[in-house]
C-alpha cells in the first residue's frame, strides 16, 4: 500500500465484496437492484461466479466495489474457496419468509471465516421484506443475531428497492473506515523503521494489498 502513497492522488480503491446465503434468497436480485436498478421476478439461477462493479465516492476518494455473486446450494460450498479469496466485505443474506435460510446463517458465517480473513466486514441482510404476510423471521430475531455475531443488520427488498442502497453503502463505508484506521496505524508505526508487532502489520499490509489494492485510473 505505502508504495503508492507518493503517487498522484488519482488512485482509487477496489473492494471485493461477496454475496452469500442459501439458494433463492435473492442474492442476484439484490445485486441487480443495486448495480443496475433492475429486478427480475425470475432471473437465471446462478451457477458460477457473476459480478458487478459499482463506483462510489468517500472522502473525495473513488471507491470501486466489486460485488461477487454465486450459487447458494449447499454442495457448492466446497468449490468456492477461490470465491472468498481477497474479500474484504460480505453480505450474508437470508429470506425473511423462509426460516430455514435464517437458521443457516451461522453456517454461512463459519464458511466465510474459514475461507477469508476474520476482519472481513459483514452485513446481515434479511431480504424479501416486502413479503409481509409470509414473514417467518421477525426483525427482532435478525437484530439479535446480528448483535450476537457483531454484524451490521438491515432488512431489504430487492423487489421494491427498500434499503438496498443502504445495505451496500453501509458495507462499503465500513470497509473504508476499517481500512483507513489500518493505514493510519501503519503510518504511525512506520517512521522508526522497526515495527513493534511485525506480524500484525504484515497481515494488515497484505490486507490492503490484496483486497484494497489501489488501482490506477484509466
Amino acid at each position: 500500500m505505502m508504495k503508492y502513497a507518493d503517487e498522484e492522488p488519482t488512485e482509487d480503491y477496489l473492494f471485493k465484496i461477496v454475496l452469500i446465503g442459501d439458494s433463492a434468497v435473492g442474492k442476484s436480485n439484490l445485486l441487480a437492484r443495486y448495480a443496475r436498478n433492475e429486478f427480475y421476478p425470475n432471473s437465471k439461477s446462478t451457477i458460477g461466479v457473476e459480478f458487478q462493479t459499482q463506483t462510489m465516492e468517500i472522502d473525495g476518494k473513488e471507491i470501486k466495489a466489486q460485488i461477487w455473486d454465486t450459487a447458494g446450494q449447499e454442495r457448492f460450498r466446497a468449490v468456492t474457496s477461490a470465491y472468498y479469496r481477497g474479500a474484504v466485505g460480505a453480505l450474508v443474506v437470508y429470506d425473511i419468509s423462509r426460516r430455514q435460510t435464517f437458521e443457516n446463517i451461522t453456517r454461512w458465517l463459519d464458511e466465510l471465516h474459514a475461507y477469508s480473513d476474520m476482519s472481513v466486514v459483514t452485513v446481515l441482510v434479511g431480504n424479501k421484506a416486502d413479503l409481509k404476510d409470509a414473514r417467518e423471521v421477525s426483525t427482532e430475531e435478525g437484530t439479535a443475531l446480528a448483535e450476537a455475531q457483531n454484524l451490521c443488520f438491515v432488512e431489504t427488498s430487492a423487489l421494491d428497492s427498500t434499503n438496498v442502497q443502504l445495505a451496500f453503502q453501509t458495507l462499503v463505508k465500513e470497509i473504508y473506515n476499517v481500512l483507513s484506521r489500518k493505514v493510519f496505524f501503519y503510518q504511525e508505526q512506520r517512521p522508526d523503521g522497526k515495527l513493534s508487532n511485525g506480524k500484525t502489520v504484515i497481515l494488515q499490509e497484505k490486507d490492503v494489498d490484496s483486497a484494497g489494492a489501489p488501482t490506477r485510473k484509466y
Binding site: 451457477i47 458460477g48 461466479v49 457448492f76 468449490v79 468456492t80 474457496s81 477461490a82 470465491y83 479469496r85 481477497g86 490484496s210
Partner: peptide, 9 residues
C-alpha cells in the same frame, strides 16, 4: 491468483 474454478465450475 485466478483459480480456474471461478469459470470452469
Amino acid at each position: 491468483e485466478f483459480d480456474v474454478s471461478l469459470v470452469a465450475t
